[in-house]
Design a protein around this nucleic acid. Structure first.
Lengths: 136, 136
DNA sequence: TATTACCCTACTAAATTAATAGAGTTTTCA
DNA sequence: TGAAAACTCTATTAATTTAGTAGGGTAATA
């Protein structure tokens, strides 16, 4: 299941991408337009800023804005930051790999074999979509 | 993240598919070989029986066994029973559809657009894999 | 008829997620 | 220069889900 964090983060990014200019947009505006708890959104935008997707400007007239162009923002990166691992099990994760302590051998594990394909197919989708592609 | 329930269920199915004959296999045997809590596995196998994947035989020499051949068991069906919806958001689910109460319009929703593709790519994988395909 | 193994209900512990509250700090504009 | 606007941070809590545990009950078979 997609977490609310990811859902809200994606919506916020799309909202910022839909702005005519690159003027900062206030948290309160995004929260209201996209029906998101303002405080929760605050923490999400903060993490997107810390990971290099957003810039922020303080003080009057401040807010958040996209640092890069929408077509340069890959869904792969966004999903990893917001949702975490793309793989459904750690033993097939590229960026968050862990061995299964219960499984004797990955190479003969049915779950591993299936989830590897699922991960690759999801990655394909994310790699083929930038922020520009998903904004209406 | 894949739930333990799904992981264990898949492993159990694979174990049963790997049996030479179709003799019933006891829960305790599967639990031991696959490192699964026996009681937890019990509830999983029960749900697989109720959904038509497994048969069971009681009494001495009893246990669980596959009803269909491994090549006739689609991962799509297995995943839906064990893990639930394949879609990551209810608004793109085929079998568990729900509207998002917050979202004004699905057709212009970025999350919807992206998750629709993710669902389809996952479905592709599941449709192309039967139990036979994933057993080593 | 006793044993074996499935069947069922209820409870609990742990983890995660989502949200809330509130205080603090920085920046900007008037 | 000072006050308002807006970001930053920490801590707490409520709700949900997951994973596991416990134990009794029932059915079938040798």
């Amino acid at each position: 299941m997609l977490s609310k964090k990811t859902k809200y983060g994606l919506k916020a990014l799309a909202y910022l991408a839909g702005q005519p200019d690159k003027q900062p947009v206030q948290i309160s505006e995004i929260a209201e337009k996209e029906n998101i708890s303002q405080k929760f959104l605050e923490s999400i935008l903060l993490s997107l800023r810390k990971t290099g997707f957003l810039g922020s400007k303080k003080g009057k007239g401040g807010g958040y804005y996209l640092i890069k162009s929408p077509e340069d923002i890959s869904m792969t990166d966004v999903m990893r930051v917001l949702e975490g691992p793309i793989a459904m099990v750690p033993c097939v994760s590229l960026n968050f790999y862990e061995t299964c302590n219960d499984c004797p051998d990955e190479n003969t594990c049915s779950v591993h074999k299936l989830m590897l394909q699922v991960r690759d197919s999801a990655l394909d989708v994310y790699r083929n979509n930038t922020l520009k592609d998903i904004i209406s």
